[in-house]
């Protein structure tokens, strides 16, 4: 399956990278494990591909966007201090893919849909969809021009649970914003205000991140290869046996990774006992709205939100409680 022609740019600095963005339509290339699959299927191919693999700025920091998932998975600091990040990384795709795929690529992972992630012949056979070559949605008759393709990154819910920030660099300036304000609930637009020529440089954890216990639960049929059909990250900041603060984030249930503040708010300061956990889990099940566009059925994925949530929260409790 030869890739269609494009011009590859291999800048060695961010400044060089920004310079080539002026050459015409382009895609950023991180690990390539998602983008090149789409290109092979002739999905939204652009004339220029700008590889970020040689840009050293992206490899700096614990959560540099250019670090491979394999590096993240095995990083001793992450494993010791923020194990949920290493663990979530270790659950992505396969060990071979994790050797190339990057942290940044996973955070920026394109949304997925059974009507989109298909070969050109497949898509053209029924007229394609609004995320690719057409202006209709094959999942919902009237999605109101919003694409409901599923966001399926595994790191985003965990980093949302840590309340991480992301650092973006653009041709004229750099900026930092909370991850919770980064994504947009539209499978095509995907980001609130990230400009095409902005690059994700790294994620950053807040100073108190180490005081949080974070756990991630992932729903998938096989223990390798599969994207999440549902993912729940739970975070608890314990204070003398009380859950002083709680966060809950999901992936794969929407076109955006979501932080569910309102579901956990009533339980802040509680002991987070089984009853509280069940209440949160039930509320989450009622909240998520999976679409019929992935391998497992929406009703099952919805039910599993409760189980994933319960298990993630239970895992957050101190050992022996």
């Amino acid at each position: 399956m030869r890739l269609p022609d494009f011009t590859l740019h291999q800048p060695r600095t961010l400044a060089q990278a920004f310079a080539v963005t002026r050459d015409g339509p382009f895609d950023w290339l991180g690990g390539g494990t998602d983008l090149l699959c789409n290109y092979k299927w002739r999905i939204n191919v652009r004339a220029n591909v700008i590889s970020l693999r040689r840009v050293p700025e992206l490899r700096q920091g614990l959560l540099g966007a250019g670090r491979t998932l394999s590096e993240v998975e095995h990083d001793p600091v992450l494993r010791a201090r923020y194990p949920a990040i290493a663990q979530a990384a270790s659950m992505i795709a396969t060990p071979l893919i994790r050797q190339s795929a990057t942290l940044g690529g996973n955070l920026l992972l394109d949304t997925r849909c059974w009507h989109f992630n298909q070969t050109a012949e497949w898509r053209f056979a029924h007229g394609s969809c609004l995320k690719a070559e057409a202006d209709v949605c094959r999942v919902l008759p009237d999605p109101g021009n919003l694409c409901v393709a599923a966001y399926s990154g595994d790191l985003a819910p965990v980093l949302l649970a840590y309340d991480a920030r992301v650092v973006l660099a653009g041709p004229s300036a750099s900026r930092s914003l909370p991850l919770r304000e980064f994504y947009a609930a539209d499978g095509i637009r995907r980001f609130r205000d990230k400009k095409p020529d902005e690059v994700l440089v790294r994620a950053e954890l807040p100073a108190d991140a180490e005081h949080w216990t974070v756990r991630y639960q992932k729903l998938r049929l096989r223990q390798a290869f599969d994207f999440p059909e549902g993912g729940v990250a739970a975070a608890v900041r314990w204070d003398h046996g009380w859950a002083a603060d709680i966060r809950l984030a999901t992936t794969a249930y929407d076109s955006i990774p979501l932080l569910h503040e309102d579901l956990v708010a009533p339980h802040r300061g509680s002991s987070l006992d089984d009853e509280a956990i069940e209440q949160i889990a039930q509320a989450l099940e009622e909240t998520v709205r999976p679409m019929k566009n992935t391998s497992m059925s929406p009703s099952y994925r919805k039910k599993m939100a409760r189980v994933l949530c319960r298990r993630a929260l239970q895992d957050c409790r101190p050992q022996g409680v």
Partner: peptide, 11 residues
């Protein structure tokens, strides 16, 4: 082979 689910070594 992503969507047709052959058991992996882990299954």
């Amino acid at each position: 082979l992503l969507d047709y689910k052959i058991p992996t070594p882990l299954e």
